[in-house]
């Protein structure tokens, strides 16, 4: 199938393809299995040996979940929370990261260590104190509560600092010589150059915000202020052995991100791949 090309096929490429396809199997099989199981009956899901494709195709697992949740509302909340978190992190982290990477200022390293140290604390310790802060702000059970603590990311700042540090200095120095202000240098020159790092951060933040699980459950109470993952988990308790229902829940949680990724994959990948940095 690769012989139609006029180019000769390097044997090394064949090996590479075999390795890549083998790896691909591991990468993709869980998704395949998740989707197949979600369309089985619970009896079929427990057969030994298991069937691969559903023998009696049924979408009853999806109907069960859909009827139990205010789905449109929950999706909307998840989207709002994800978008706000991502946009805010891009702005807040890139500004700070640029300052840490490119400007020498008093206490720079001490402050940067402080920022980094946040990464080193097990995230679970923040759960209760952050709940208290949100409560004191009078924001319990509101949409802003979903994203407020997540707007500030030590990880994002570190990621973008590394990006800025690896960017060439020439353009920036030329602009300084031309008398351009730091503000302009950042927004017009450095920010666009950091695009690959920004795309990596977007991907990370979208995944994090979309999948945030414990925090929404703790801070919000009403189902119409809940996000997708936690909302699905409230249903799981009652279907402990209903594997198709559990898998359908997983599919519903994962698929929107996969679809978004497929639609925007060019922007994502191209954002990383062709940024016009030519040293």
């Amino acid at each position: 199938m690769m012989t139609d090309s006029k180019k000769k096929i390097k044997p090394s490429h064949v090996v590479v393809h075999i390795l890549l396809i083998a790896g691909l199997f591991i990468a993709v099989f869980p998704f395949f299995w998740m989707i197949c199981t979600s369309f089985k009956t619970s009896g079929e899901a427990m057969l030994i040996p298991p069937t691969i494709l559903p023998e009696h195709f049924t979408a009853v697992a999806y109907a069960t979940i859909m009827s139990a949740l205010p789905f449109a509302k929950v999706y909307l909340n998840t989207i709002i929370s994800t978008v706000v978190t991502t946009v805010a992190q891009i702005i807040i982290c890139s500004m700070a990261a640029y300052a840490f990477a490119r400007i020498e200022f008093p206490f720079r390293n001490a402050i940067f260590i402080l920022v980094l140290s946040v990464l080193m604390v097990p995230g679970q310790i923040f759960l209760i104190p952050q709940y208290m802060i949100i409560m004191h702000l009078g924001l319990l059970d509101t949409i802003p509560a979903l994203f407020l603590p997540n707007l500030f990311s030590a990880f994002g700042t570190f990621l973008l600092r590394q990006t800025f540090m690896s960017l060439p200095k020439e353009m920036e120095e030329a602009a300084i010589v031309d008398g351009a202000g730091r503000n302009r240098i950042f927004w017009q020159i450095m920010f666009p150059l950091a695009k690959p790092g920004l795309v990596s951060l977007v991907i990370f933040t979208v995944r994090f915000a979309w999948n945030d699980f414990m925090w929404p459950l703790i801070v919000n109470t009403s189902m119409d202020k809940m996000t997708l993952g936690p909302a699905l988990s409230t249903l799981q308790g009652q279907y402990t052995t209903e594997y198709p229902t559990q898998m359908a829940g997983a599919v519903l949680a994962v698929i929107p991100l996969v679809v978004v990724f497929f639609i925007f994959q060019n922007q994502f990948i191209e954002g990383i791949a062709h940024t016009g940095i030519k040293g």
């Binding site: 993709v28 869980p30 998740m34 991907i203 995944r207 999948n211 993952g229 994962v254 991100l257």
Partner: peptide
């Protein structure tokens, strides 16, 4: 395709 696992929910994935 290799990128797919990177965007999934760990709770959902652990279950599978």
């Amino acid at each position: 395709l290799y990128f797919l696992p990177a965007i999934t929910m760990s709770a959902a994935v652990a279950m599978v």
